[in-house]
Amino acid sequence: MLDRSRLEKIGAIFFALAVWQLGAKLLGQDLLLVAPTTVIQRLYSLWITADFWRAIGFTFARIVLGFSLALLVGSLLATLAAKYHLVEVIIWPFVATIKSIPVASFIILCLIWLSASNLSVFISLVMAFPIIYTNILQGIRSTDHKLLEMANLFRVNWLKRIKYIYLPQLRPYLTSASSVAIGLSWKAGVAAEVIGIPAGSIGERLYEAKVYLSTSDLFAWTVVIVAVSIVFEKAFLLLLQGLFARLEKS
């Protein structure tokens, strides 16, 4: 049975689609606003080509790699920063800079250093890193000090402390940070591809849609990006939940 809030959301989506369809019909110019039915037709014609899947695979692999590296590096540096104040001080200017610089400036700058095909890996990493780092550091800092006192008194080893005290405490921080960072990785990663135009990427398809004024392609690929990003986010969060549940039962 679908609950009320889910039904409301589905209703809102259909309403938005109806408004979009009506707007496109009233405007009558596909170049300015393509109708959702046309986008679906275009998606279907793309769906059956091998290039479509290759482009998704190319972009997906790079953005997921970038996010995974951000998760690894962010977690590691947050752990070190929580333990050694000096590490936090050293990292602070980098985090502050990444947070404040516009992603387009970063992409253009990085394009000078890196090949276009690897640009999205680095940009996804750089954009996701501050979110992961900041949240995990905050999570470690908010660990219940009474539990840590208990662990000290009972001489609990560091491996057990991580499993029983730190990881359960980090769970909400890691979940929300991952959810935000995945969305941002996709936005920044695709933007990097549109500017760098690596061959065989989704970004290249978007760039071509702009050059050839193909609004239906632009909308179709945007739908694909949103769908793949959401599927990856949900799958990752499910995996995370499963790992935590397993940890608590082990």
């Binding site: 009474k146 539990l147 006192e149 057990k160 029983y164 359960p168």
Partner: peptide, 22 residues
């Protein structure tokens, strides 16, 4: 040393066996 603190100081998401095994 071992203790029963004024507060229970248990790891909330784990069961009793896991808390003792810790």
């Amino acid at each position: 040393k071992s203790a029963v603190f004024q507060e229970d100081r248990l790891c909330e998401s784990f069961n009793a066996v896991a808390n003792v095994r810790l």
